[in-house]
Design a binder for these strands. Structure first.
Length: 298
DNA sequence: ACCCAGGTGCTGC
DNA sequence: GCAGCACATGGG
């Protein structure tokens, strides 16, 4: 058991944040089961931001989970740096500023976010879990049974048709091809960490089914590149609604009325001041938007 | 029946 | 460079 008392992230908020897909809330509402790579971790937290209990050894904590939850970063400083004249961001940080950006396994993040495209989060969770059941190794500890995240070897060995029946749709081909490509030219996670943002993004985009948005998710949630800023439909909704100019909103109908480069411009204008934490801010406004849309948006 | 989801790749200009 | 389109599957 490891107990953290100071500067604790919001574990429930992380569970619902959409940056990972294999974390589950138990029926007691305060215990969470997290599956990452081949590992299982039980975490308990009575209230958001309160004391955290990790069910693991000190070695496992120091070696893996501490970095995984990004506990070495001063999140309070980031919250305090927020522009008080920005009402949306101020509200988002008040509601979701306890969410830390995770450092997940790169391969797992690649496949998870290839699956994520054109899917809602509950559906992504089911697909990732089904993939683990088919190709992952089986494990158990004293209170849990689970499947580890499958290796590239396992997926490639299944062949092009090995992914059928998992509701992956057109992403089947992307996943199989990426597994084969990864065996051919995949690099170690540490090598990716040491690359420049641009080179790392270019490398990731060389895989089938990984484009600009998914690459940014991998860099943010898997490589610790905290200035990566994935632009998805929810972020577009936010930027259009909260930050676009009234004139330009007059001309067009909705989020698709603005070009991708215009969105990049808006991000530059309002978020570049948070250098080193731009992606963390992205995660906070994304999670805040999800939370607000808890029932039938539009 | 219709629209949408943490998009990507391909075509044609 | 950018717009337009096909690509599966499930939910509202």
């Amino acid at each position: 058991m490891i107990i953290i008392k100071e500067n604790c992230p919001d574990i429930g908020g992380i569970c619902d944040s959409g940056q990972l897909f294999r974390m589950y809330r138990r029926t007691d509402g305060i215990t969470f089961d997290l599956f990452a790579g081949q590992r299982h971790l039980a975490v308990r937290q009575q209230e958001p931001g309160g004391e955290i209990v990790f069910d693991c050894t000190p070695e496992e904590y120091e070696q893996y989970w501490k970095g995984y939850f990004d506990l070495g970063r001063d999140y309070k400083r980031i919250r305090n740096s927020i522009d008080p004249t920005d009402p949306f961001l101020t509200a988002a940080a008040a509601s979701c500023g306890g969410i830390s950006v995770l450092k997940q396994d790169v391969w797992e993040t690649m496949i998870s976010f290839i699956i994520s495209q054109q899917k809602q989060i509950p559906s992504i969770r089911r697909c990732v879990e089904a993939l683990c059941e088919r190709f992952g190794e089986h494990y158990s500890d004293r209170d849990c049974e689970w499947f580890g995240f499958p290796s590239a070897e396992a997926i490639a060995a299944g062949g092009p048709d090995g992914l059928k029946g998992l509701s992956l749709g057109y992403r089947e081909r992307y996943i199989y091809e990426t597994a084969v490509q990864y065996l051919d030219h995949g690099i170690r996670d540490e090598e990716l960490y040491s690359m420049s943002y641009e080179n790392a993004k270019q490398y990731l985009c060389s895989f089938s089914g990984i484009g600009e948005k998914v690459a940014n998710c991998i860099l943010l949630f898997g490589a610790g590149m905290t200035d990566a800023f994935p632009i998805d439909v929810h972020i577009k909704d936010i930027l259009y609604r909260e930050y676009a100019l009234p004139e330009e909103k007059n001309d067009v109908s909705g989020r698709d009325g603005l070009s991708l480069n215009r969105y990049r411009e808006i991000i530059d204008e309002h978020f570049s001041r948070y250098k080193g934490a731009k992606g963390i801010i992205q995660q906070w406004i994304f999670a805040y938007e999800l939370k607000k849309n808890v029932r039938t948006p539009r």
